[in-house]
């Protein structure tokens, strides 16, 4: 864009947002595991609090008996319902995230200590939130940092609240409806004429070498199919040749 020193890559698709440049420097098994964990993180980051709310306040029957009892025991004496608790913690988390971005590194650490230790520990001891909710929100926050694309992380932060509202009204049915809506939305998006969910739906197994997993480097000789490239062969950077010669 004008005046900006950065370049934009188009068209962008959902799987591309899950790729990070480090993937290609790692062994393919490690890179694949990391990449799968990113997809999982996308889901936990957007729906984990909603899942917690729906299972605890609608379907405790889903949990194993001992787990249900121990969650119930930790929530004894907490004055708020799970949704209020979640929104309080979510709000605190957003504040902490924004605060630590703008501050210099030295003070940023203080913020994280205040946030993590003081608010987390003290809120639990004061009985405002239950310890399990702190775990859930912390897990959610960590998941949103896993996503390589910061904007995608922001998007998951935004859809978290509607999912929580759906979950508190309709339980797991609400979450399913929300997911269906999200899926429809993602499938209907187009970026420069290319479907956003391309190569996940409809499947193009040839492109899966670099979608959910990152296949070994010798499989990467072809360009992604969904772009309809005129030359389907990738530029030969010597990697493949060396690989074959050795």
């Amino acid at each position: 864009m004008d005046g900006s020193p950065e370049a934009l890559i188009v068209p962008v698709t959902f799987p591309i947002l899950m790729q990070a440049s480090d993937d290609y420097f790692e062994n393919w098994i490690i890179a694949s595991v990391i990449r799968i964990s990113r997809y999982v993180a996308f889901f936990t980051s957007s729906i984990l609090p909603a899942l917690y709310i729906s299972t605890t306040s609608f379907h405790p029957g889903m949990l194993p008996t001992t787990l249900a009892l121990s969650i119930a025991a930790t929530r004894m004496g907490v004055p708020f319902p799970a949704i209020v608790e979640a929104i309080i913690m979510e709000f605190v988390l957003e504040l902490l995230q924004e605060a630590s971005i703008r501050l210099p590194k030295v003070i940023g650490e203080t913020v994280s200590i205040v946030g993590g230790l003081v608010i987390g520990q003290a809120a639990v001891e004061a009985g405002i939130v239950s310890p399990i909710m702190v775990i859930i929100i912390a897990f959610t926050a960590v998941s949103s940092f896993v996503l390589p694309n910061y904007s995608l992380g922001l998007a998951t932060r935004v859809i978290r609240i509607p999912f929580m509202i759906l979950a508190v009204t309709f339980g797991s049915f609400g979450i399913s409806v929300g997911l269906l809506w999200l899926l429809t939305y993602l499938c209907s998006l187009k970026s420069f004429g290319v479907r956003y969910m391309q190569s996940l739906s409809p499947y193009r197994f040839k492109d899966w070498k670099d979608t959910i997993i990152r296949a070994p480097v010798q499989f990467h000789s072809k360009r992604p199919e969904f772009l309809n490239p005129e030359d389907s062969q990738r530029q030969n950077l010597g990697i493949r040749r060396n690989f074959n010669e050795n």
């Binding site: 429809t184 479907r195 969910m197």
Partner: peptide, 17 residues
């Protein structure tokens, strides 16, 4: 909402579900 988006989006959603 899904039907409103047309048959191609229905196809895409079904493919994942």
């Amino acid at each position: 909402y899904t039907v409103y988006q047309g048959i191609y989006v229905i196809g895409g959603v079904t493919y994942i579900l």
